[in-house]
């Protein structure tokens, strides 16, 4: 039951893009075509989940025992950067097909604040999923990261669908490009506000 709450909350209620504003740069950057948006979502999903597990373990078994939690930011970003590089090398070797699909998005992910954001949230924030406030354990953290990434993908793919239509419509000159995309995202965020209160 608790896992279900985590999933619903992370995908819909606290959607990472539309409620927490993490990872908006690539959201606006690559969402003009549905196919690239899908590729980016896949890559982000993969990296967020992996990075959260690794940084969670790093924090629990290295930084906390040694009293080095002030190094969280700097060590996490290094872990994420090397992880992205490693994923790229492994994918290239093991699954060239997947590499073709996700490859070009991987280098962009290091500077996607969603990845560092989720990794830091999981180790610093207390959550209340149907009980009292507590820090997440490894299982919960993994589910939370994966569900958050799914929420990212959902918002991104929906938004790309809308933007493909926008490209064909007659938009006033000053609104062209980003402004109209931002206003559309605002209306989408309003729709997602409708989910608040269900968890």
């Amino acid at each position: 039951m608790e896992y279900l709450l985590i999933i619903v909350s992370a995908i819909f209620v606290n959607n990472i893009l539309l409620a927490q504003f993490l990872g908006v740069c690539p959201f606006l950057g690559v969402s003009s075509k549905l196919s690239t948006a899908t590729g980016m979502s896949g890559a982000v999903c993969f990296v967020i989940t992996l990075a959260t597990v690794v940084t969670y373990l790093l924090n629990k078994y290295l930084l906390i025992p040694l009293g080095l939690t002030f190094l969280q930011t700097i060590s996490f970003i290094l872990v994420i950067a090397s992880l992205v590089q490693m994923v790229e090398i492994v994918l290239k070797k093991v699954s060239p097909g997947l590499y073709q699909a996700l490859g070009i998005f991987l280098p962009l992910i290091t500077t996607n604040c969603a990845v560092l954001g989720v990794a830091l949230t999981v180790v610093t924030k207390e959550f209340t999923f149907g009980g009292e406030a507590h820090m997440l354990n490894l299982g919960e953290a993994t589910v939370y990261a994966f569900a958050t990434a799914l929420g990212y993908g959902l918002a991104m793919i929906l938004f790309a669908g809308i933007r493909e239509h926008l490209a064909l419509s007659d938009v006033p000159k000053a609104f062209k490009g980003l402004p109209v995309a931002l206003i559309t995202a605002g209306i989408m965020a309003m729709a997602f506000l409708g989910f608040s209160g269900i968890v």
Binding site: L18, F21, F175, P179, A181, L182, A185, G186, I187
Partner: peptide, 13 residues
């Protein structure tokens, strides 16, 4: 959240 996107959008316009 929605206000953030909408205000930035219109300011860009």
């Amino acid at each position: 959240a929605p206000g953030a996107f909408i205000v930035l959008g219109y300011l860009l316009v």
